[in-house]
């Protein structure tokens, strides 16, 4: 198994404020990797740095051996990394269908639009009924589903989900996790950022623990549950 996404000595942040320091990380192809760690220690910044929304000051990011860190965000998406951002970031005045179709904006994805739309609707049946509804009028859970559905419409080989369960009712979280679980078999690599460390470790093949802007520990998801001291040290729970 080869490392599909490889990050070496990454330093990034907002202006003078450095958030990620000398961070290195490898994600294996076809796996579900969980990125956990306390709030404000750089999980979201890491995803935004990978997808090009945050400037990088040092280090390299390579996708299947090709460097992507000098690229602009749209070129990074075209190279196959898709970021489903925290807080959904839908297009509020577009309908659900228009939002989903924005996922297949790039030519490579546009060719498969009809087929993917069917896949998304079968995975998230609620969206089929809400197709013509304006995104700003959806409930929190529905918005999250549109966000994930929009990510699935892309041709991304790597799907990065930023806190997909944040602020949702437990029953909706279960539904979202069911969807993530089915992604595992789809051949896509999934990077899951989670506040809820146990839940993520439960589902993930590999767990990376982010602390103070760099990776403090990584291992199999099953090892995580056997090492409660990690949670205590880094997550204070």
């Amino acid at each position: 198994m080869s490392a599909e996404l490889s990050i070496r000595n990454l330093t990034a942040g907002y202006g003078a404020q450095v958030v990620l320091r000398d961070l290195s990380l490898e994600i294996t192809e076809g796996t579900l990797a969980a990125l956990i760690g306390p709030n404000g220690h750089g999980k979201t910044t890491l995803l935004r740095a990978i997808s090009g929304l945050v400037p990088i000051t040092a280090g390299q990011i390579t996708l299947a051996g090709t460097r992507i860190d000098p690229l602009r965000p749209d070129a990074i998406v075209a190279s196959g990394i898709v970021h489903v951002p925290q807080g959904d970031l839908l297009f509020p005045d577009m309908t659900v269908l228009e939002n989903l179709r924005m996922g297949s904006y790039l030519p490579a994805a546009a060719r498969l639009e009809k087929q993917r739309l069917e896949e998304v609707f079968s995975l998230l049946p609620k969206l089929r009924d809400r197709q013509q509804q304006t995104a700003s009028t959806l409930s929190g859970g529905e918005r999250r589903m549109v966000g994930i559905g929009r990510g699935l419409m892309t041709s991304g080989r790597i799907l990065m989900l930023d806190e997909p369960s944040l602020g949702l009712a437990p029953i909706i979280i279960d539904q979202i996790y069911d969807v993530i679980d089915t992604l595992r078999g789809s051949g896509r690599t999934v990077i899951l950022v989670e506040e809820n460390a146990m839940r993520a470790a439960d589902i993930a093949d590999e767990v990376h623990l982010l602390d103070h802007g760099s990776i403090a520990w990584h291992g199999k998801g099953s090892e995580m549950s056997g090492r409660p001291e990690l949670l205590e040290t880094y997550l204070g729970s």
């Binding site: 090009g52 400037p55 990088i56 860190d69």
Partner: peptide, 10 residues
């Protein structure tokens, strides 16, 4: 010192 960012985001 604060290094300059290496890439443009736009």
């Amino acid at each position: 010192a604060v290094p300059l960012p290496r890439r443009e985001t736009v």
